[in-house]
Amino acid sequence: MIQHVIDEPIQMSPRRLLWRRVRGHAGLLIGSAILTVILAVAALAPFIAPHDPYHQDLLNRLAPPIWQTGGTWTHILGADQLGRDYLSRLIYGAQLSLFIGAAATLISGLIGTGLGVIAGYFGGRIDMVIMFLITARLSMPVVLVALAVAALLGSSLTIVILILGFLLWDRFAVVARSATMQLRSSDYVLAARCAGCPTWRLLVSEILPNIGDALIVVATLEMAHAILLEAALSFLGMGVQPPLPSWGLMISEGRDFLFFEPWLIMIPGAALFALVLGINLLGDGVRDVTAPDGGA
């Protein structure tokens, strides 16, 4: 169970206050714990993976996991249809998911934040054009467009990251825009503007740092979104390419064995679920902790 609202402490230094909120937020703690584990697994993959994730052994294909009859400790989670060790692929898959999520979020964050800050700061016509772009982007069916482009261009790791990066910037733009609008008329921005500070410096040094908290929350949500979408694309065969151990691809390859070897889809799916859950819990937690009254 996850706890929702934090009791409001009174009269404490901001840092201690924050720390107390963090400690009291079960979701944040669970999320951080899950993410730490997955990050550690990804970082230490070469040391903890029992086998080379790409080493195939066709004669050993579809070896069952340890809990099924015929399972051995050599392949704790069994082997896939090319006889590759499932546990090792799972471990390296964590690297891949995290990398794709981070890279796609970086691209979409740059695009979205840039557009949002410009729209919020300048307002007027510029704002109208950017709002139009956001609306247009929102009305494009993401999965369909991503699939079509990947199918026609030929999918690869780079293309998947680019597609996701160029499709998932909308929430960054919306949040950055409204946050910038609020800041635009604040005292220190006005003061900086009067002091003859060039606009770009104002945007970078005054606006950006102050909307950072909100953007971090969006970034976690979008990272989770990107990871799920990558998995979905790979599941449909239009994401990253074999032999890369994408979890989505592993589920897709296991689909042919749905009725007979369901563990082939259970294992990578559970890993994917845990990762996205961890990221979401962390994002929700950061939002609750940094802006406890901030609604939604």
């Binding site: 979701g27 979905a232 889809i265 799916g269 679920f273 859950l277 979401n280």
Partner: peptide, 13 residues
């Protein structure tokens, strides 16, 4: 929270 993290294609399978 679970709903948001559940990959829908996996849930379907």
């Amino acid at each position: 929270v679970f709903g948001q993290a559940l990959p829908n294609f996996w849930f379907a399978l």
